[in-house]
Design a protein around this nucleic acid. Structure first.
Lengths: 212, 212
DNA sequence: GTTAATAGATAGCAGTGCTGTCTACTATCG
DNA sequence: CGATAGTAGACAGCACTGCTATCTATTAAC
């Protein structure tokens, strides 16, 4: 197909597709002449993935490029992707006091140790979690109880996630599933959490659900 | 205290504080003369909250302004904040096919009904969840199983969240706790999820945790 | 009385994700 | 065959967000 049809099928404007091509988010089409290229289904799928990672996952272009590069590697390594390539969802800015982060980091390392989680000592997720924990402290909230409860929940969720990944046919599909489940899973969990928070709040404060 | 000390205590540059004042994220200090104002602890706390919502929660300025306005209302209504004021974490852009969203919305409404969740028919979280579900479909992933599993998890999490909120001393504290728990909770859960995903992946693929 | 800091106003700036325009070509249709 | 529409690739520009810099008139602090 030509670029116009790729655009039609995905709803992405042609100039935007060209931009993604330039940014390396989309492989170039097969050139049939100096100014004609042919695209196929793989481009449609890739383009849809990019839009979803952008709009739902809210990942920056640069992060998506890295993620797709990991997806396209000839030696699929799901563990590597789950452990390293995926962004931590926590923004890079460090608004929190470094000392508080260090304290929180000790706490996280202790949590990981106690629970016997097999997580690399330098895993970015450790630092990311420590930063969030420090943020709780920064706003004067005691996240102690919440941390243990959430850790239980996270174990359950990760189990479901790995099941989801394991359901894929081949290694490539598993890699793809790992990316989708991780990034979209965050959003799915967050929005379901909002739903259930409203429900629990309605129960607790005795408000009927069909008003508001 | 003067603005310089407010800056020192929070690590936020003075021009940035002035910007937040202009944007209504921070109440004006008490004017002691036409060009002198006095700030206090409440400004320090508010400023820290703003930074954490910005950097960890990744909320846009406009959303933070609305959220703080809800916090400052004289009639604290925790349920209203949990149900309406909180952003849905899902980006506003609609990259997904509207038809797919409509289908997903039916599914979510069914889920809410089956589980007896007391959630307003027009609750934004319904639409947000539907959009995420449609995004799964868009990238060719079947989120069926995951949805039910995550719904179970979300019920548990929301229970913990409401406990957390209930631990606050007064209505104002509960409102504050609701905001903090919701926004930072998303990030805490997401980063703990990354940790446990790496763990589960290490178990499944037989990789030792201390290498990588 | 000199120096540093301040409120408030306005302009500018860096990063991100596009969007518009141009050129030299090519496909397609009548 | 010619007219029209579409295309690759290059490059400039644009809208939005979250700041940052500069200026003026005034005030605090030593």
């Amino acid at each position: 197909m030509r670029i116009a049809e790729l655009s039609r099928l995905t709803g992405v404007p042609v100039p935007t597709i060209k931009y993604y091509l330039r940014e390396g988010l989309l492989p170039a089409g097969e050139l049939t002449s100096p100014n004609q290229a042919r695209y196929d289904d793989s481009h449609v799928r890739r383009l849809r993935l990019v839009r979803v990672l952008l709009d739902i996952g809210r990942l920056p272009i640069a992060t998506i490029r890295q993620l797709l590069a990991a997806l396209d590697r000839p030696d699929p390594d799901v563990h590597q992707v789950l452990g390293r390539a995926l962004p931590s969802a926590v923004g890079g800015k460090d608004s929190v006091d470094p000392e508080a982060v260090r304290t929180a980091r000790v706490r996280i390392d202790k949590l990981v140790g106690e629970r016997g989680w097999l997580v690399g000592r330098e895993a970015p997720a450790r630092q990311a979690t420590a930063e969030v924990l420090a943020a709780f402290a920064q706003v004067g909230a005691d996240a102690g109880v919440l941390l243990e409860q959430y850790a239980d929940v996270a174990e359950t969720v990760a189990g479901h996630d790995l099941d989801f990944v394991g359901r894929a046919r081949d290694a490539e599909g598993m890699l793809y599933a790992a990316v989708v489940a991780s990034i979209l899973g965050d959003s799915l969990l967050a929005s379901l959490r909002r739903l259930t928070q409203e429900h629990e709040s309605a129960k607790k404060f005795g408000i009927r659900g069909d008003d508001c």
